[in-house]
């Protein structure tokens, strides 16, 4: 009975999973944890893991909020592509104000999110379908902007978003951390988080209480769009170019996965941004582990899928019931009288 109660703690499973993965790394190659400070910048595998997971973490922050309202945002990968295309083309134009270009990128995210959110909350369309539209059409739009090319640019200032460093850490890590703190403050220092959870748990009752459910649902898609736009700029800056076909491809699925690994239900309700980040780190650390352990990287996807299924099953109350039943039977065989008195 005790073991099963331990499972119920929301933090335990994701944290243990992450710890196990890190432990595997420690055993496989102790230098995984080696950090080095050089030229005013921190280097090491751990920093790499954080850096690589930045875009996914950004998406996952927005996705957590969307999923908490019972929705889903499939379009974030496409939003990354559009943001990248817009920024890259602006960089090649006569505009030379970086802040203006960043604002334009953010604006793309807001518009995309506003469209998604509008379809979901004001037209009442299922979130999967509403965001599927932009997922399909979005890459077409990005290609249209790029005229079918990969648009590259030479602008060290913009590129520093992706490759530079702030306070000795890669700038994507710092930006992501900043957005995470901002988002966490936004939902937990105000009543926004409570309203988002209430809207996800019971939208009808929430609107009867006077919570502006529609506006809240709409705004989480806008936030998700914004997060995707930031991720899009990081990816674009990182490769010095916008690739409409491949930028952020399937990243929305990783983000959804991270949220689920963090213990959130796709049906909506409770969410936790820190747990989501742990989910992101699990995914990225796993990828790194696979590479470090000398397994051919082609096994990456296969192993990932098996771990997803394992985590899903571990979270399933039915499997826990089956395990409990199994132990109960075993227990019963040992001492039937005790069990009878218990039940």
């Amino acid at each position: 009975m005790r073991t099963i109660q331990l499972f119920d703690s929301r933090f335990l499973l994701p944290v243990v999973a992450l710890a196990l993965i890190l432990l595997t790394n420690l055993i496989l190659s102790p230098e995984f944890f080696h950090l080095e400070f050089k030229d005013g910048r921190l280097y090491g595998s751990l920093v790499d893991v954080l850096n690589r997971s930045a875009p996914c973490a950004l998406l996952a922050i927005g996705m957590s909020l969307v999923i908490a309202t019972g929705g889903i945002d499939l379009s974030v990968g496409a939003v990354i592509a559009i943001t990248g295309a817009v920024c890259a083309n602006l960089l090649n134009s006569s505009i030379d104000s970086i802040s203006l270009i960043v604002l334009a990128g953010l604006f793309v995210g807001v518009v995309a999110g506003a469209v998604n959110g509008g379809l979901v909350s004001f037209f009442g369309i299922q979130p999967i379908v509403a965001t599927l539209v932009l997922m399909v059409a979005g890459r077409g739009i990005a290609q249209l902007i790029n005229d079918g090319q990969i648009v590259t640019f030479q602008n060290p200032a913009f590129a520093s978003i992706g490759v530079g460093s702030i306070f000795g850490l890669p700038s994507p890590v710092v930006i992501t951390l900043g957005i995470f703190l901002l988002a966490q403050a936004f939902v937990r220092l105000t009543a926004m988080g409570l309203f988002i959870e209430a809207s996800g748990c019971n939208p009808k009752a929430s609107s009867y209480i006077g919570i502006p459910v529609r506006t809240i649902k709409w705004s989480v898609y806008v936030m998700s769009g914004l997060c995707a736009a930031v991720a899009g700029m990081i990816i674009t800056a990182d490769i010095h170019g916008a690739d409409a076909n491949n930028a952020g491809l399937w990243l929305e699925l990783d983000a959804i996965l991270a949220v689920v690994l963090g213990g959130a239900s796709l049906a909506g309700g409770r969410f936790s941004l820190p747990l989501t980040l742990i989910g992101v780190l699990i995914i990225q650390a796993m990828t790194t582990t696979i590479i470090m352990s000398g397994i051919d990287p082609k096994f990456n996807l296969l192993i990932k899928s098996l771990i997803i299924v394992t985590v899903l099953l571990l979270q399933s109350p039915i499997l826990r019931g089956q395990i409990r039943g199994f132990f109960a039977r075993k227990h019963k065989a040992e001492n039937s009288a005790v069990v009878e008195s218990q039940s």
Binding site: A191, L194, C201, N202, K204
Partner: peptide, 24 residues
């Protein structure tokens, strides 16, 4: 379906209406 917001806590359910009135 129209009253309680489950699985939010008793505390949160009690405070929701007042909080909604105050704004987020």
């Amino acid at each position: 379906t129209e009253g309680i917001v489950d699985p939010l806590s008793v505390r949160e359910n009690l405070l929701l209406a007042l909080q909604a009135q105050k704004g987020w």
